[in-house]
Design a protein around this nucleic acid. Structure first.
Lengths: 235, 235
DNA sequence: AATCTTAACTTTGTATACAAAGCGGGACTG
DNA sequence: CAGTCCCGCTTTGTATACAAAGTTAAGATT
């Protein structure tokens, strides 16, 4: 049991429970831990060289964000969103992100714009690269783009909501995504950035919604059936 | 130390940690626990006849919702939102609730409408009553109105966000609210319900935003200064 | 052979014990 | 008298121990 979990840092237990939560979150969001994977308290604890207490706290915490599902007396698993959940997540993004993007377009400073451009360049270079790691980094960068806009918007409450939605979106894409998703998505990011630069609130909102629509359109909710079986055998 | 906390049920520890979290949440949202109050792990544990483990979990959990602030090595306190936080919470509601209300207006069934009317009637009767308890129940009913709309909208992700925002709004109003808030607010609820009944999506969104504006306008962010002192002495 | 029972084992739920950090009071010093 | 340092007391942070629920597999029975 307990194949190599391949966490980012190996053990890295500096700052108590928070560091474990962050390491787990990163592993889930970057898809090093497949949806449905069981997260045994002792196993994870051994990995980080901490007691079950801290692991348990971290798993609890992640379950509040919807990244982990905890079943009473049965344990914790990497979340495994249903097609229904997946749709709700994207519907939520459609309701939330236009407002955030509009606020960002109003608030944005030259310094912010620079960061946006840097992130886009990074994303671009990752797209050019091949390999699993570059792909994972690209996924993360793509999410970070949306999170950066949320940060620029300047409402910490909304920013936290977005953080959750982006993380869960990553899980959904891991389960149901079909295409490379990359090139088209990136191009849309460019367009959004351009609209942000000109401060065109209307355009930004419209582009964001279109972008979310495209991401969801790329999903195939049937395609996960096989993975379901794999999981059934695996657990 | 540890004056009578006046929790709802006295002890009520049936279902493990969840019941403690719910009892605490209710106490906070209904303002039986003042913002800033220290929540010592052992004290709360004594109250529910459980160990610190469960209390700690419940407090952690509430801190994720923003109802409790946890300071490392110092303990947990009932949250004490700053004017800045308060504004962000209402800004978030302005961004989120129109979309939810619009969705609710599309989805609403006759059965839903009945529940809305029942809730309004309940609210009305509470307004008529005098006394602290009726006041608290009224506050809760007022929040429940918004939560019911979120439930009707039918997106569980958005519903959870709303649950958090409503709970935190209650804290903000506890700190900064001035007027009775009741009558005007209730009248607006009636208007919103009417628009929901006719399925007028535009009107619902507009009325919701106006309602949120009015609630926030009733706040006086200066007025809490005295309470700040009281808290400083109290802790 | 299939199924139900049951008993050992594994994993989670909760309580307690131990370690470390904060806080406060009192004595000492300038 | 003010300020500061030190010591013990309280509270939190983490680990471990114990209890209870679940899981699995072997054995008996039909």
């Amino acid at each position: 049991m307990m194949r190599n979990f391949a966490f980012a840092t190996g053990e890295a237990a500096e700052g108590g429970m928070d560091s474990i939560r962050e390491a787990l979150r990163e592993a889930i969001v970057e898809r090093r831990l497949a949806p449905g994977t069981k997260l045994s308290e002792v196993d994870v604890g051994k990995f980080f060289n901490v007691s079950r207490t801290l692991v348990r706290g971290a798993l609890q915490s992640l379950s509040y964000e919807g990244l982990v599902r905890v079943e009473r007396n049965r344990g914790a698993f990497v979340a495994h969103p249903s097609p229904q959940e997946a749709h709700e997540i994207f519907e939520a993004r459609r309701q939330i992100e236009p407002g955030i993007a509009a606020a960002a377009a109003k608030n944005i400073t030259p310094a912010d714009l620079l960061r946006v451009r840097q992130l886009l360049a990074e994303e671009q270079s990752l797209i050019a690269q091949r390999g699993r790691d570059a792909r994972r980094a690209e996924i993360k960068a793509s999410g970070d783009f949306h999170l950066l806009i949320a940060a620029i918007a300047g409402n910490s409450v909304m920013e936290r909501f977005m953080k959750e939605l982006i993380a869960r979106s990553s899980l959904v894409i891991a389960l149901y995504g079909q295409s490379a998703t990359s090139s088209c998505g990136h191009h849309e990011h460019e367009e959004i950035a351009a609209a942000l630069a000109t401060g065109d609130v209307q355009a930004v909102s419209r582009l964001i919604v279109a972008h979310i629509d495209h991401i969801e359109a790329d999903l195939d909710v049937r395609s996960r059936k096989p993975m379901d079986l794999r999981e059934a055998l695996d657990l």
